[in-house]
Each structure stands twice: as structure tokens, then as C-alpha cells.
Design a protein around this nucleic acid. Structure first.
Lengths: 166, 166
DNA sequence: GACAGGTAGTTGCAAATGATACTAATAGGA
DNA sequence: TCCTATTAGTATCATTTGCAACTACCTGTC
């Protein structure tokens, strides 16, 4: 998979035209635009927002169910739950049948915040793609998915190999 | 800009189909795939890699010139420079004409590392887009740019307004 | 030549993220 | 029942990142 290079590669490497660099800059811009909304308004972090938005309607999930739906790891979720509880936006009960499991749901206050934020982030979402046609948006999403799958495959390979080619 | 919402918005919000969420997951996957390469091999952070790749051929830049070319802020660059110096991958001299300015360049060791990493990241870059046609890649990049510009405009608006619409 | 204002870069503090190790509880056997 | 393996979630530590304040230096003006 990792093959040889030639001298040209080295001479011509330009960060500005490096695909992963562009992706990162793109992602940072989008992420900042959206997260500013709920951070400035309610001091919510990305993890907190994700947790809330998953609990929003599908009330009463365990932490690990949130992990499955949010592409966050359990540490992240655990911390988001903690700080949301501190802010009284989320309530945690213990599952009667399996006392390792938590039963998480938004409080009324949490739901109110959530409902308040939704239109704001939706507006940002709309503004981000306002000059794209519906087709373009579809294409963008499907290409991103393709690349993402490639990336995930690569990551899988790496952690499997753990580094051996010189 | 921020307009009204209706009840449907709130009922139907799904994190999984939220555009910024998808972008973030996409970006994280790509970024992880690439940065693992130079992190595992040489313990380089993203900032360090960026700094190195900008200095690579265009030897001898000041920190602020790196800032301009890298979409990192000066704090980030400063720290990257520090740790690269510690690793002896980068040398810093002081500009004779303006002693506030640093004159940064890769050491031989740094250049060797850089040249060693280039083909590896190039391979990842290629693998990320291997199932995309050249056209698709072009389209993806141009759509990302469009969205990114929108995002940057939004960010600009926000910091200008500082939050007032209810 | 001294003072105001701007620029280059650094440092320190706080929030966010990731990896690892740990505790508590359940499940499946023997 | 007891023993081991798994699972849910938490705590700890190291890294990363951002913001704001700070030092050092330069420029222009008086």
C-alpha cells in the first residue's frame, strides 16, 4: 500500500494544495460557524450539543446508546453528561434492570434550550449551503461519504498493522 | 438572517442528517488518517507537520510568514517552532534587520524527516480519493470551497454582531 | 532622542480531546 | 455458589487548542 516515491514529490509538496489540509480547513470553518451559535448562546460544547440533540425527542437513552449514535467515544459522552447535569439540562437515572446503565433524558429546561437552539443551527446549516443547488449538495455529501469511508479503512489498516514498512 | 421556525423543525431534528455534523465526522476521519502517519512515525503534531511542510523548500521564513501560509494562528506556530527546535528539526535565527523577526528553516535532520514523510502522506492522500474520478475530486474541492466561504462569512458576521437577535 | 502606537513572538490559563486504566455491575459457566 | 469474562461508565494523565495578556522591538512624530 505504501509505495515508493521519486524526487519530484519532495520538491513540489505544497501544503496549500494538499487535500487533507483543505479538508481540515474546510471542516474547521464549518464547525466553528455552527458551534459558535450554541456556544455563545448557552455555553454548550460540541459534545454537549450532540448529546442533547440525540436525546431531544428519543427520550431516555443510556450513555452507550448515545455513543452509538453520535460518533463520540464513551469518555466524551460521559463528560458531556456530567456537565449537562451540572447545568441542569439533563437528568440521569439508573436503569432498574441493569444498574450499570444510566437512563438519560433532557430536563424541561434542557428541552427548552434545545428547542431554542434548533432554529438557529438550522439557519446556519441553510446559510452554509445557500449558494449550492440541491444537486450539488447531494453530490457533496456523497463524495464526502466516499472519502470518509476510504479514510476509515485506512485508519483501520493502520491500527491493525501498527507500523512496519520502512 | 436568523428567521422564525415552526414546530416541525423541532420534532424532526436528527443529528445524523445534520450537515455540519457530517462535515465534522468527515473531517475528523480524513485528518486522523493523515496525521496518524507522521504522528506514529515521528511524533509530529499537525501544527508541526504544517510548519515543516511550509518551510520544506521555501527555506527561511519568519513565523508570521508561516502564519499567513498555514491557516494557523501565531500561538500555534510559535509552539510548533518550539517543539521542532527541541527535536532539532528546525533552526531559528534572528533577523539582522528586524530583531523581532525570526528566521526559520529546517535543519538537515528536519529536511530528512520531511522528505521521508512526504511519500507517506502522499500515499494516504491518494488512497483517500482513489475511488473518485478526477472530475469528482475537482467538484468536491470546489464545493468544499464554496461552503467554506459561506462559513467564513458567517463567522465574520457573528464576531461583528456579537449576538443580538432573539 | 523620547514617546505613542503598532508589530513579532511568547507565555500562562482554561477548555476540549484522546488514550489508558480503573470501578461497579452483570452474565455465563463449572 | 463461585470464578472468570464482559460491559457501562468514570477518573486520570498527557496533548492540543484558543484567548488574552505580556515582552521586546521597530516606526514615525514631535
Amino acid at each position: 500500500m505504501v509505495t515508493a516515491s521519486n524526487a519530484k514529490d519532495q520538491e513540489e509538496f505544497q501544503l496549500g494544495s494538499f487535500f487533507p489540509y483543505k479538508v481540515r480547513v474546510f471542516g474547521t470553518a464549518v464547525s466553528t460557524a455552527v458551534s459558535s451559535v450554541y456556544r455563545e448562546r448557552y455555553g454548550l460544547s460540541v459534545s454537549e450539543w450532540r448529546t442533547m440533540s440525540i436525546l431531544g425527542h428519543t427520550q431516555a437513552l443510556s450513555a452507550s446508546e448515545i455513543v452509538e449514535r453520535s460518533s463520540m467515544d464513551k469518555v466524551n459522552v460521559s463528560r458531556a453528561v456530567q456537565s449537562l447535569r451540572k447545568k441542569e439540562l439533563l437528568r440521569r437515572d439508573i436503569d432498574g434492570e441493569d444498574r450499570r446503565k444510566s437512563v438519560l433524558r433532557l430536563t424541561e429546561k434542557g428541552l427548552a434550550v434545545f428547542n431554542d437552539v434548533i432554529p438557529l443551527v438550522r439557519n446556519v446549516e441553510a446559510a452554509l449551503t445557500e449558494n449550492l443547488t440541491a444537486d450539488e449538495e447531494t453530490v457533496l455529501l456523497s463524495l464526502m461519504e466516499k472519502v470518509q469511508k476510504n479514510a476509515e479503512a485506512l485508519i483501520g489498516d493502520m491500527s491493525a498493522e501498527a507500523g512496519n514498512e520502512t
